[in-house]
Design a protein around this nucleic acid. Structure first.
Lengths: 241, 241
DNA sequence: CGGTTCTTTGAGGACCATCAATACGCGTGG
DNA sequence: CCACGCGTATTGATGGTCCTCAAAGAACCG
C-alpha cells in the first residue's frame, strides 16, 4: 500500500478519501521500465490508466507506414485516460523514452471510483479537460505555424521553463524532436540553422539563446497555443487573465 | 421549462433527475442566429456551455494573421465544454455557418450540477472524452496525411454517412472545407482534380463517387482516425472491435 | 442586370521531403 | 588503445507538395 505514497498527494488524488484511494490502487502496479520499451499500441483496448512517476514517455501514432510523435510526457502526466473512461481502443501508442517508473491503475477501478467519489470525479474531469486542451493547442501549433516557427516556439518554451538563463540541453534526441514538431530530422537541422538569424546557437544538444528578444519577436509565442496548463481549475481567477 | 424539451432526451441529460435538469437550465437560453455570426472569440472566458440544436457551427482559430478551421459541428454537438469546466479562456473561436438554433447553459450551472448529480458527471466526462478523442483524430489526420489524402478520406466518410449511394452534396462551401482540411481553396481545387484518377467526379458542390473501391483503396480510411465516435461508452463491447 | 463572392486555372516560388554521402559520437570487442 | 560498427546528425542536390499572386470564369444576390 505504501507503494503508492508518492502519488497520494498528486492533484488527481489529493481530495479523495483514504478508502477510495485504497480501492483505486487495489490491483495497481508500480513498474520500472528501461528506455525504448513499447507500453501500449494504438487499437488495443484500455486495461489500465498510466501515470508517469519518473522518466519520460512518448505518445505516437502511425498510418500507412508513416509515424509521428504526438506528445512527450513527464512526471506526473497521465495517459490513456480518455480510452479508459470510454472503454474504447487507444488512439495512440506509447513507449518509454528514458528509464521510467510508471504507475498502472486498472481501468475498472477508475470507472467505479469515479461513480462513488465526487472529488475524484472532479479531478478526473479536470485532468481530461487539460489533456483535451493540450491536444487543441497541439493542433493549432501544427496547422497555423511553419516548421521553423514551431521550433522557435519550442525553444522559447524551454528557455522560459529552465529559468531564462540563456541556455539549456535538449531533453530528447533530435530525431524524436523532429517527429514531435512534425518534420524530418534533416529539416530540423536546417530549421536550427535558420534560427541562427534569430539569436539562437546550437552545438550538439546544447542550445544557447544569444538574443532572447529577437527569438521571441520571431516566434511570437501565444498563451492560447503555448501556455503550459495546470490540472487544477482557477476557481477564483486573479487579474485580467 | 418546455423550451428545453428537445434536449431533455440527449445522452448528456438523459440520465439525470428532473430537478437537476431544471436547475441546469435555469438561466439558460435558446437562441436563433443567422449564418456567419460570431459567437465567441478565443481568449475570452467561458460563461456558457453551448449545444447545437439545429444548423451548424464552425470552430476556428487564428495566429499571427493566419486562420484555420478546427471543426464543423452539427446537432447535437456541444462546444466549449473544457473551458467551461476549467473556467479557463476559450482556445477556439466559434461562428455559425448556417442559420442555427443554439442552447446556452451557464457555466456555473454545469459546474454545480456536476457536483451533485453522478449521472450528469458521468455524461460530462464521456462527452469530454469524446471531444478529446476527436481532437486527437484531427491531429493524426493532419500530421500523417497529405492534403489529397485528407480530402479522399473526407469524401469516404460522407460517402458512408449518406448511405453509400455514390453521390452527395458538400455541406459547406469549398473555401471553408479547404480550411477545415488544412489547405488553401486553390489547393483544394487541384486536390479534387487529382481525385479524378481515383474514381471521384466533381461538379459544383455535387460529388459523385464513380468507383468506390478505387477511392477507398487510395484513401485507406482507418478507424483510429476516421471513425465517428458516439458519446456513450460501450460498456459491453461486442465483437473483436 | 451589376456587383460581390466563390471557384478555377496558371505561373512562380517557398517550404519541406527524399535520397545520398559524409561526418560525428559512442560503445564494443579485438 | 585502437579499429570497427552502428546509429545519429549534418550537408547537398533534387523533386514534390503546397502556398502566393494574378486573372478569368461561374454562381449568387440584391
Amino acid at each position: 500500500m505504501t507503494r503508492f505514497e508518492e502519488i497520494r498527494s498528486l492533484p488527481l488524488f489529493a481530495g479523495i478519501g483514504d478508502e477510495a484511494f485504497a480501492a483505486l490502487t487495489r490491483g495497481a502496479y508500480v513498474q520500472n521500465f528501461p528506455p525504448a520499451v513499447d507500453l501500449i499500441n494504438e487499437g488495443e483496448t484500455a486495461d489500465f490508466l498510466y501515470i508517469v512517476a519518473s522518466g519520460s514517455v512518448e505518445l505516437y501514432a502511425g498510418w500507412n507506414g508513416r509515424e509521428t510523435s504526438v506528445a512527450f510526457l513527464r512526471p506526473y502526466d497521465t495517459f490513456i485516460l480518455a480510452a479508459t473512461i470510454k472503454n474504447a481502443p487507444y488512439l495512440m501508442s506509447a513507449r518509454t523514452m528514458t528509464k521510467s517508473r510508471l504507475i498502472m491503475i486498472p481501468s475498472e477501478n477508475v470507472r467505479s471510483i469515479f461513480e462513488t467519489d465526487t472529488e475524484f470525479a472532479r479531478a478526473i474531469v479536470s485532468e481530461l479537460a487539460k489533456c483535451y486542451r493540450a491536444s487543441v493547442r497541439n493542433l493549432k501549433n501544427e496547422k497555423l505555424r511553419t516548421a521553423v516557427e514551431r521550433l522557435a516556439n519550442y525553444i522559447v518554451k524551454h528557455y522560459r521553463r529552465e529559468g531564462e538563463d540563456g541556455h539549456f540541453d535538449l531533453p530528447v534526441e533530435k530525431r524524436k524532436l523532429a517527429a514531435r514538431l512534425g518534420m524530418t530530422p534533416e529539416n530540423l537541422s536546417r530549421a536550427f540553422s535558420a534560427l541562427k538569424n534569430h539569436g539562437v546557437e546550437v552545438e550538439g544538444s546544447r542550445i544557447t539563446i544569444r538574443e532572447p528578444e529577437r527569438l521571441i519577436a520571431f516566434a511570437k509565442p501565444d498563451p492560447l497555443i503555448d501556455k503550459e496548463e495546470t490540472r487544477e481549475s482557477p476557481r477564483a481567477p486573479s487579474g485580467i487573465a
